[in-house]
């Protein structure tokens, strides 16, 4: 019977201490930066919450009635973009993961990723200079023939720079984000589940509905939330495409469109001074809170997925 040997302490080396210290410092710095972002935004916003509303641009009744239409516009534009993008993104992901020939699939995936590489200001330029004029006749036709429908109430916008055009541009921008994540999740579906479904005589679509989609649901949800976060925060495309107004309106094709928080900041910031800057920063804080919440929920959903797939 030998006694348990005394634990041997490793020699403390200077290199190790420095290196692990630097790594820890870098990690902590990130937390500090995020905290600083939040703290400084709050500090600079406080004057805006206390200010006499008459000094805010447009003289609204209160700060909140200034922010209200902006929050509405942000959420409305992002929701429209999601409605357009999600079905298409799911289709693309399924096409790449289950329909396209194996050999081509990766190349096709890269092609869709190229959409994410285009800078947002270029999307703005394209949306305002090319897409809006091209789509305006369609809006005119829509308003002429479906003007009774509340979303297409006349008069039609003469430039095509409406919230619907913005939503289309935003949808193109968030497509690659949603597609990239969904594609990964669909590819992780256990082969045995798919083969079992096919062996029972399911068609390809029935196999996808019974095996792939249920397995991928948490991944799809978090991908959609990530896309939503991106659409909420997108600035330049909205600022360049939209012809804005201070209004709460669901009409998709009019020239009076609700604008979004980031676009409003980008358009007014260069001329803002004094309390105007604080007001804009306060709207930025509200945007930060919204996107923070959306992203946290998305990441939480992803982490659920991880634990689940780890068990398999």
């Amino acid at each position: 019977m030998t006694a348990a040997p005394a634990r041997i302490a490793a020699k403390k080396r200077l290199g190790d201490t420095l290196f692990s210290g630097a790594a820890l410092a870098a990690g902590t710095l990130i937390l500090v930066v995020l905290a600083a972002v939040a703290i400084f935004l709050v500090a600079q916003s406080i004057p805006a919450f206390l200010v006499d509303p008459a000094e805010i641009k447009g003289s609204p009744d209160s700060f909140w009635s200034y922010v209200g239409p902006l929050v509405f516009g942000t959420v409305w534009a992002a929701a429209l973009a999601l409605i357009i993008a999600v079905p298409i993104a799911l289709g693309i992901s399924l096409f790449i993961s289950h329909y396209a020939p194996r050999r081509l699939a990766q190349g096709l995936g890269y092609t869709i990723d190229l959409l994410a590489a285009v800078p947002s200001v270029v999307y703005g330029l394209w949306g305002a200079g090319v897409l809006a004029p091209a789509i305006q006749p369609f809006y005119a036709w829509l308003v002429d023939n479906a003007g009774w429908f509340p979303l297409f109430t006349p008069p039609v916008s003469g430039t095509g720079r409406t919230i619907l055009t913005v939503a289309i541009v935003l949808a193109v921008m968030i497509l690659p984000i949603i597609t990239a994540l969904c594609r990964e999740v669909f590819l992780q579906t256990p082969k045995l589940h798919e083969e079992a479904a096919l062996a029972l005589g399911a068609t390809r679509w029935e196999m996808i509905r019974m095996a792939v989609l249920p397995f991928g649901r948490p991944g799809i949800i978090s991908a959609v939330m990530l896309g939503l976060g991106r659409a909420l925060g997108e600035t330049m495309a909205v600022a360049m495409v939209l012809s804005p107004a201070v209004i709460i309106s669901f009409v998709l094709t009019s020239s009076q469109n609700p604008t979004t928080i980031p676009a409003n900041i980008a358009l007014n910031y260069p001329e803002a001074h004094g309390i105007g800057v604080n007001v804009l920063i306060a709207t930025g804080l509200i945007l930060f809170v919204i996107t923070f919440a959306v992203n946290s929920v998305a990441r939480w959903a992803v982490s659920l997925r991880k634990e689940f797939s780890g068990a398999n």
Binding site: I30, V33, G229, G284, N295, A298, R299
Partner: peptide, 15 residues
């Protein structure tokens, strides 16, 4: 870090 990936670029500018 994951949450930071989703910070809108304009908020980073304002901060």
């Amino acid at each position: 870090v994951d949450v930071m990936t989703g910070i809108p670029s304009i908020v980073a500018g304002l901060a």
